[in-house]
């Protein structure tokens, strides 16, 4: 722990602070937060309507437009 923090302090560059990818969003072991969004046919969807019997792969992507 100490070693890594020392390394961090010693070697960090001046780039803007970026979140560590592993700290983004909810963690493994937590429940996927409830959500509701319309699909491309305009139908409202939730986890329940999207999941398969063993779960859901939910991808967040940047944009389909650019």
């Amino acid at each position: 722990m100490l070693l890594a923090s020392l390394l961090l302090a010693a070697t960090q560059t001046t780039a803007p602070a970026r979140p560590d990818p592993m700290t983004l969003g909810p963690s493994a072991g937590q429940a996927l937060p409830a959500f509701e969004a319309k699909d491309s046919t305009g139908t409202s969807r939730t986890f329940e309507s999207l999941k398969g019997p063993n779960g859901l792969v939910l991808v967040f992507f940047r944009s389909a437009d650019w």
């Binding site: 999207l50 999941k51 792969v57 939910l58 967040f60």
Partner: peptide, 8 residues
């Protein structure tokens, strides 16, 4: 057995 969806 996984559903798939992608959000933007």
């Amino acid at each position: 057995g996984l559903g798939v969806a992608a959000l933007s």
